[in-house]
Design a protein around this nucleic acid. Structure first.
Length: 565
RNA sequence: CGGGGCGUGGCGCAGUCUGGUAGCGCACUCGGCUGGGGGCCGAGCGGUCGCUGGUUCAAAUCCAGUCGCCCCGACCA
């Protein structure tokens, strides 16, 4: 029974003043969610319906690859997290119970499940396994934002695979790739599976599923040649610099008083920014200094840099630049540098460049990497739109929201938690693991972002809180009401989820609310239609209307609904 | 963590500079009209002005502290 007069669906004409993202505004306005605090959101009945529709798709596809659903606690002993070295993560909520025991609120469940598997799995005969659950995650986010897109508490479907070896993990991983592809197809989202950084999850490979939308926090590099990667790790061949200065036989000093930034120096010397060498003084994990240089129009990519070096780095302080790098900030350059130089590949083969002279108010021109300074090479820059992708296509960059991720963990968690098994020869091995997450709330929000128009949400059929929004314009006792009542019963008998708007509101109000909430199909029963022997159907996407015969309206509506995206 | 902004009825806002009985629109309630695109008329309900303290005859307004929320950046296992 979903009669709107008694259903908690508090729609608003105006969005909260502090809402920025489209999904944030619309999900609040449509009465799907309400905020309880920073990064804390309540799902109202209609919003929860959409969430559960995602869950259902995910559950079906996880079960289809042999996943077994279970449930683990959010509240966990700190000890587990100490063992895997993750207790010190800032985002991990920590608390104490009345006996002063250290506890955490889980932000993910590798520790808990690996703990159990370590105890229950002893033999190669017990493997492989895919286990998953839908559970609340708690993360002490530095900055929750954009409604339900980045929250401190959210539900995640997290799955974990356990295999005998790397080959088994590859198989489990591939199963998840296929399941996830189906999940996002069925959800009706536009999505990309992109190569991603493994981060501190450790392990040997990772992909993210990205749904492009304006509110996205990530950037993905895409090309028509099928390339898709998070810009965090994307690689490409740089575009050539137009208007490079003539090469010189040797570097030549040039006065550049007060010109410290790339823009200032390029402007002063009348050369393109790409003719400059941008120098980033950094300090490695072990305290060793390093000068990273990229082309002036490029940006250093800290993740690629970290991966190239095998350890994180931080920017040097001004004081360190003066003392360790022996150069005034703003005029640091690789020629004559006292520290090792790591140069980005895009600088290879270039000549006639401009670099800091390590002297106040002075740069060098005619600089040539390799000739004028020793280098180690590495791909350590952000790709830029227009670069050539590894498949030969042209890269474009789009904002996107991460709706799922899959990681090959290897033995990152099984080793510290002692998850081992005996093989058929009686020798012991660590279990090979993978972990696979999906955020249903993000799928919901991404669908809103991707489908919304100026009237509201236009759900993909698979995620809509209601399949059909039936609107009657008749009051109690009028024919338009009794006919609509009958149609409501007929529609429900087909098994579809129908929201029946029998409120005593004006037609305009009901239509506006229906388009805001965004069910794929709206049916309107009014006096005019009845006189013509018709029910009006409006397809939400495109808002096109057509007449259905009053007789057999339910069947006609279902048929129409089935053809919708 | 750095920068910026905001807390006044359910929502959106004015009032704060220059202290003097708290207002507007929407929503809500009641009555009437209207009845295919957020309609009209009338009458109402609803606010410790985030909180605490201070200054003052008097504080939404000035001062101090504190809590909360948003945006940009950093971060995001």
């Amino acid at each position: 029974m979903t009669r709107q007069s008694g259903y908690l669906l508090p729609t608003e004409k105006e969005a909260p003043a502090d809402a920025e993202a489209v999904s944030h505004k619309l999900m609040v306005r449509a009465g799907l969610v309400r905020q309880l605090g920073a990064g804390m959101w309540t799902y109202l009945p209609a919003g929860w319906r959409a969430h559960r529709r995602v869950e259902r798709i995910v559950r079906e596809e996880m079960d289809a690859i042999g996943g077994q659903e279970l449930l683990m606690p959010v509240l966990q002993p700190a000890e587990l997290w100490r063992r895997t070295g993750r207790y010190d993560i800032d985002e991990l909520f920590k608390l104490r119970d009345r006996r002063d025991a250290d506890l955490v609120l889980a932000m993910t469940h590798e520790e808990a499940l690996t703990y159990h598997v370590a105890r229950e799995v002893r033999s190669y005969r017990d493997l492989p396994l895919i286990l998953y659950h839908f559970q609340v995650k708690e993360r002490d986010e530095p900055r929750p934002r954009a409604g339900v897109l980045r929250t401190r508490e959210f539900i995640m479907k997290d799955a974990y695979s356990f295999d005998r070896d790397a080959a088994g993990l590859d198989r489990s991983y591939q199963l998840h790739v296929e399941a996830y592809d189906r999940i996002f197809d069925r959800s009706g989202l536009e999505w990309y599976r992109v190569e991603s950084d493994v981060g501190m999850m450790g392990g040997v490979g990772a992909h993210e599923y990205m749904a492009p939308c304006a509110a996205g926090e990530n950037e993905v590099a895409l090309s028509d040649a099928g390339y898709a990667a998070n810009v965090e790790i994307a690689t490409g061949q740089a575009q050539a610099v137009a208007g490079l200065p003539e090469p010189l036989g040797a570097p030549e000093p040039v006065d550049t008083p007060d010109a410290r930034t790339i823009e200032e120096v390029a402007g002063l010397l009348g050369v393109p920014e790409g003719a400059l060498i941008k120098a980033l003084p950094v300090i490695r994990d072990d305290g060793r200094p390093l000068l990273v240089v990229v082309r002036g129009d490029h940006r250093v990519n800290e993740i690629k840099l970290r991966n190239r070096l095998g350890a994180p780095v931080r920017q040097a302080t001004e004081e360190e630049i003066r003392s360790v790098f022996a150069a005034p900030p703003g005029f640091v350059g690789p020629v004559g540098a006292r520290v090792p130089v790591l140069a980005d590949e895009a600088l290879r083969g270039l000549a006639g460049l401009v670099a800091g002279a390590n002297e106040e108010g002075r740069h060098l021109r005619g600089v040539e990497p390799g000739r004028d300074f020793d280098v180690n090479w590495g791909d350590v820059r952000d790709v830029a739109a227009g670069d050539r992708c590894p498949n030969g296509g042209t890269i474009r960059i789009e904002p996107a929201i991460e709706v799922g991720n899959i990681f090959k963990l290897g033995t990152r968690y099984s080793e510290p938690l002692g998850a081992r098994y005996l093989d058929e020869h009686g020798s012991e091995h660590a279990i090979w693991m993978g972990s696979y997450g999906i955020g249903p709330a993000r799928i919901v929000a991404a669908a809103v972002e991707q489908t919304a128009d100026e009237h509201g949400i236009a759900w993909p059929r698979a995620l809509a809180p209601f399949d059909i929004h039936l609107v009657t314009l008749g009051k109690e006792g009028e024919e338009a009401r009794t006919v609509a009542d009958r149609l409501y019963d007929d529609l429900r008998a087909t098994g579809l989820d129908v929201l029946y708007d029998e409120r005593s509101a004006s037609a305009g109000e009901k239509f506006a609310d229906a388009e805001l909430l965004g069910a794929p199909l709206r049916l309107t029963v009014g006096r005019k239609g009845i006189e013509a022997g018709e029910v009006e159907a409006q397809v939400r996407r495109g808002r096109e209307r057509r007449a259905l015969p009053l007789d057999g309206a339910a069947d006609a509506a279902v048929e129409l609904w089935r053809a919708l995206p």
